[in-house]
Design a protein around this nucleic acid. Sequence first.
DNA 1: CTTGAACCTCTAGTCGCTAGAGATTGTAGG
DNA 2: CCTACAATCTCTAGCGACTAGAGGTTCAAG
Lengths: 141, 141
Amino acid sequence: MFSIGDMSRRSRVKVPTIRYYEQMGLIGAPERSEGNQRRYEQADLERLMFIRHGRDLGLTIDAIRELLDLSGHPDRPCENADRIAAAHLSSVREKIASLRKLEAELERIATHCQGSTVSDCYVIRALARHELCADEHERID
Amino acid sequence: MFSIGDMSRRSRVKVPTIRYYEQMGLIGAPERSEGNQRRYEQADLERLMFIRHGRDLGLTIDAIRELLDLSGHPDRPCENADRIAAAHLSSVREKIASLRKLEAELERIATHCQGSTVSDCYVIRALARHELCADEHERID
DNA sequence: CTTGAACCTCTAGTCGCTAGAGATTGTAGG
DNA sequence: CCTACAATCTCTAGCGACTAGAGGTTCAAG
C-alpha cells in the first residue's frame, strides 16, 4: 500500500496533482486508511505513470483519458490510439514550424538593434510598425 | 474616432480581448459616446497594434507592458527592450528543442505500431512501460 | 420609426495545474 | 505512552490570456 507521497515520489507527479487527477476522474478514488488518508495499490501507480508519460509527451488530459479507456480493452482495435498519437505528432510539428518562423523573426529583430536609446531601438520599432516584420506571423500558444 | 469594432477589424484583436486589455491596464480607458460606447483615436489603434505584434511574437502581457512603457520614453537606453527580446528568443529556442525531442519520440511511437488490437498497440505499450521510451522526456507546456 | 447589428456590463468557464489556510493523522524517537 | 513534526486532509482561490454567454442598451441604415 502506498501513501499519496509514495505515489508522488515514484511517479514524479506532485501530490496535489494526484488529487487533481482523482477529481478529474483520471484515476479512481482509492481506499482510505482509518484516518482517511489515501492508500494506493500497484495498479494505481501504474495508471498514474501512464498518465505521467502521456503528459510528458504533451498529450491532453482528454487524450490520456481515451488512451486509458482503450488500454482497459485489449481486444479492441487500436486505431483510435494510433489516431491520437498521429494527430498529436502533427500538432507538435505544426507548433515547431510556427516557432521556427518566430525564432527567425525574433533573431532578426533582436540582433538588428544597435541603437542605444529607445528611439533608435529596432525591437521597439519592429513592434510599432509592422512593415518591419519579415512576414505575417500567425498566433501560437 | 473608432468604435471598438473598428479597432477590432483594423488590429485583428477580438472585441472582448480589447476590453480585456483595457481591464488589464494595457490600454487606457477611451472616451465614450453619449450612449456609453467606447470611442478610440488613432494613437489607441497604434498602441493596440503594438500589443498585437508582441502577442504574435509570443511575448507575455507583462513583457509587452514593459515595452510599451519603454516606447513612451524615447530617450532612455534600450537595453531592457533588447534584453526582453533576447530572453524571449532563447525561450523560443528552448521550446523548439524540447518539441523536437518530442517529435522524435512521438514519431517513433506512432510509426512503430503495426498491431491491430490494443494489446499489441505500441502507442499504448509505450505509455504503460517507460522502458520503451527512447530517453527521458522533460515536461513542456 | 423600425429593425437588427453592434455595443454595454457582468459573471463564469477554459486548461492543467499550483498555492495557501486551517485542521487532522501518521510515525519515529525518547 | 508521549511528544514532535512531517505528511496528509478538504476547501477555496489563483495563474495567463483569453472566451462564452446572459441580459440589456445604443447606433445606423433604410
